[in-house]
Amino acid sequence: MKYTYNIYFDLQCIVILLSFLFAVKIVKNKNTPRYMKGFYWYPTVGLLCAIPSYIESHFFPIKHSQYLINFSLLFHFCFLGNFILKVLPKRNVYIIIFFYLQLIIISTMLLSSDWKFLANKAFAITNFSLALLSLVYFFQILKQTDLLNLLEEPSFWIISGIFLGMGFESPLSAVIDYLTDNTLILQHKYFFRLIVASYIIMHLFFIKAYLCSIKVKRI
């Protein structure tokens, strides 16, 4: 069981590493859209968080690693949420309020003393919010009159990655939360593997976005 989980985890580390390398590569490319220039921070932090987790899963447990997970979750939400807000064709007050409200809720949950109990809930809420924001992006691009070459638009691939990854991850986190509540620990591993898979999917879409960034064509 642990062996399979490790393979998934290794694969995730490789994909994040690739994502990081591509993200760094596009920084100096003159065709890269402005909103993609700073995107390398996301896989960088992802990689920094993946290394201790990798050590933990393969070798020995690291003390207080939960703080890293808390930080990474907060960063994950702030960064991706902010990215979606940045690329939204129409940013309105309700979306911004929604984003900050979620941020407050998640921060409160993670900073609370009972964080272990609330962490899975925070994961579920975070990723569900990101999936919702992605849906807002999709609706807005369908409504806008300024048409883009969608399949060559990096923002579309990033948002699709977030939507697929987080839309898939969010119910899984909720299930894990339920299982934890009901002390059904054994089933955890199976769902964790799926969560890892969702992050792999997301990063694969990000890689596609980096590749699109090299050559962006507008109609």
Partner: peptide
Amino acid sequence: IFLLVTIV
């Protein structure tokens, strides 16, 4: 995941 892919 199939549902999500279908949406996209």
